[in-house]
């Protein structure tokens, strides 16, 4: 584990005068599962495309698997498996034909064996001649992952691989990712799901093109210094509206039957909540990743809104 899998610095990319990626620096170690989080349109996809040479950055530099992202994109492409957000294999080809085509594109030896093995691992032996377009969402994602893995890449770039996939299929998918990571394959995966974020070794949170936080889940939670109280009782919606208006309260988020109220000053928050919510059950809880992300997103929006 000498050099990191991804090491990019100060990446910038604009489309039509709009900064989509703004000064993003990121280091992904070998064998690491690195979660890439952020709201829609925050620049996750663009950042991933910059790293694998599908887009050229306006500014910034870096290496991917030790190759320069500006000069050596051909070498990077051979060693990276990139899975697009939308299913981007050929729906009018069968599963086997798709895999065989990919094997040819990467000039692999013993293609037939490799493809057979991949189909077997997928558990799709009986359906290898089915058109890829007729697969369900979960199967499509698994096929896409298998196709990305076919040429045994050292790094996987996965762009929202589990969007629209049911929980069981997602769990299987993540088990697969962890197995791959254990074999030393690095993974950069973007996601919207908090449970998935918690399964990553490290996380990066991006909003409006800017990287807001990086580190382990615990580090990110700690970095924001948020305190959270859980409030239970009836009529929480009305209470939330009242609490939101108070300066001591940074945000309120509903979690099932509990309302999470967060603030940066512990005693002020406690005072504010206790003063407003008599008759409710108030317990301090640990601030979760989701609380922190919602907080960061609202915060960054405020910062950006102030800019001309």
């Amino acid at each position: 584990m000498t050099d990191p899998a991804i090491d990019v610095k100060h990446l910038c990319k604009s489309f039509h005068g709009r900064r989509v990626v703004d000064d993003v620096s990121l280091t992904v170690g070998r064998g690491e599962i690195y979660g890439f989080l952020g709201p829609n349109g925050s620049g996750k996809t663009t950042s991933i495309r910059l790293m694998c040479g599908l887009l050229t950055p306006d500014k910034g530099s870096g290496t991917c698997l030790g190759f320069d992202i500006l000069q050596e994109s051909a070498s990077i492409k051979r060693r990276v498996g990139y899975m697009t957000q939308r299913f981007s294999f050929w729906e009018d080809l069968t599963i086997r034909e798709n895999l065989e085509f990919v094997a040819r594109l990467y000039e692999m030896d013993r293609r037939r064996e490799t493809v057979d093995l991949a189909i077997e691992n997928l558990g799709l032996q009986g359906r290898a001649n089915q058109l890829a377009g007729s697969l369900s969402g979960g199967w499509k994602q698994r096929l896409a992952l298998a196709a990305c893995m076919l040429h045994k890449p050292e790094l996987l770039l996965l762009d929202e691989p589990t969007a629209g996939v049911d929980p069981t299929a997602r769990r299987d998918y993540w088990e697969e990712l962890h197995k791959l990571a254990a074999q030393g394959i690095s993974v950069l995966v973007s996601t919207h799901y908090m449970d998935e974020a918690e399964r990553c070794h490290k996380l990066a949170y991006i909003a409006y093109g800017k990287l807001l936080a990086t580190g382990t889940a615990q580090e990110i939670v700690a970095s924001q210094k948020l305190f959270t109280l859980a409030v239970r009782g009836d009529g929480l919606a009305a209470l939330a509206a009242r609490l939101e208006a108070m300066p001591e309260v940074a945000q309120t988020v509903m979690f099932g039957t509990a309302l999470h109220v967060s603030g940066t000053d512990e005693s002020a928050l406690q005072g504010a909540v206790n003063g407003t919510s008599s008759g409710y059950e108030v317990t301090p809880v640990e601030t979760g990743l989701e609380d922190v992300f919602i907080y960061m997103m609202n915060h960054s929006r405020d910062n950006f809104g102030a800019r001309p």
């Binding site: 599908l54 051909a74 990139y82 697009t84 299913f87 981007s88 050929w90 729906e91 990919v102 594109l105």
Partner: peptide, 13 residues
Amino acid sequence: ERGTMENLLASPV
């Protein structure tokens, strides 16, 4: 249009 071009471009072809 189908998004498969991205896949082709990401490969060594």
